[in-house]
Amino acid sequence: MPERPSHPRPTAMAVWLIIAGVIGWWAAFSLTMERLHLLADPDAIASCDFSILVQCTANLESWQGSVFGFPNPILGLTGWVAPIVVGVAILAGARFARWFWWLFELGMLFAFAFVIWLITQSIFVLGTLCPWCMVTWIVTIPTFYVVTLHVLRAGLVPVGPRVRRGAAALMGWVPLLAVVSYAIIAVIAQVRLDVLGNQF
């Protein structure tokens, strides 16, 4: 039998998981189509190539773009289905066992760490900003925050009451946390790549 937590159904989180999942999946699908297009015609120019700095091709054709031996967007095509399914299931009244939340949080932790690594590779190694990749960054970061705070506030991991209360309080600040995260990335990109100077 699934363990039934005492907290109310996280409806707002469920809605966000669906929205983020759909956006993330669409970004992964678009990148996959761009990759297939480039494989079919190596001389083609990707539709998301706007300049030397803002483009998809350099990222897709680099080894960083196929870390596990296949194009990274395939991870997104499969991975973003999970938040959509979880969000819909929560709205339908589903309750998940503690072990399920642990696995879901582990998946989000992997996604978050992978995105941070890709951001550093994009800015410091490749020197490019991939538009569809940035869409993935935009939805992955707050999704990780939301799921992590939910797991903590619901007591799904062994933490004390103070941590649970803190996580519950921080849940309302996720939009600000996300904006601060985006700002940090933007500042790093500007300092490293002079984005504004190269685009305008």
Rank of each mutant, 00 (worst) to 15 (best):
D41V: 03
G127R: 09
A46N: 06
V135H: 04
I23D: 01
V88E: 02
V187K: 06
A58R: 15
L170Q: 01
W26C: 07
P42F: 14
P8F: 09
N59D: 14
A169E: 10
S6M: 13
V85Y: 05
W80Y: 11
T78N: 05
G24I: 00
A44L: 11
F112E: 05
V159H: 05
L149I: 11
L193M: 10
D194E: 13
W80P: 01
A92K: 14
T57S: 15
F50V: 06
W26K: 04
F29W: 13
Q190C: 03
A178Q: 13
A14H: 01
T136L: 10
A20W: 00
R165Y: 13
I90V: 13
F50K: 02
L75H: 08
W102N: 13
V163A: 08
T78C: 14
C56T: 10
G65A: 12
W26P: 00
T120D: 13
L156K: 00
V191W: 08
V67F: 15
L75W: 10
V54Q: 06
A92C: 04
T57G: 12
I123K: 07
L91P: 01
E34C: 06
L39M: 15
I74L: 15
M108H: 03
F110S: 10
I185S: 04
P175C: 08
Y145R: 00
T78E: 06
L75I: 12
R9C: 03
F110N: 03
P83Y: 04
I18K: 00
E105N: 10
F29T: 09
I119R: 06
L31G: 02
A20D: 01
F29L: 15
V125S: 13
M108P: 01
F50A: 09
F100M: 09
R165D: 14
F68T: 13
F50Q: 08
F96T: 02
A58E: 14
H150A: 05
A46R: 02
Y145I: 02
V174Y: 05
R9W: 07
F100D: 00
C56F: 02
S181M: 06
P5L: 12
M13D: 06
R164M: 10
V179E: 08
P161A: 10
I138F: 12
A89N: 01
G87I: 00
A14D: 04
I188M: 13
Q121W: 09
V163R: 01
I45W: 10
A89Q: 05
W26R: 05
C48I: 03
L60M: 13
I45V: 15
V180Q: 08
P83S: 02
A40T: 11
G127A: 07
Y182H: 11
S122F: 10
L177W: 05
V157M: 07
R192A: 14
F110T: 12
S51L: 12
W117Y: 15
T32P: 02
A92E: 08
F100W: 08
R164Y: 11
G107M: 02
G79Y: 03
H37Q: 13
E34S: 14
W80C: 04
L149V: 07
V195N: 02
I19L: 14
L196D: 03
D49E: 07
Q190K: 04
N72A: 06
L53F: 11
Y182Q: 12
Q55P: 03
A183F: 15
I141N: 01
V187L: 13
G69R: 09
F112H: 10
F112I: 03
L118S: 10
V151D: 10
T136C: 03
E105S: 12
W16Y: 09
P8D: 01
L176N: 14
G65E: 09
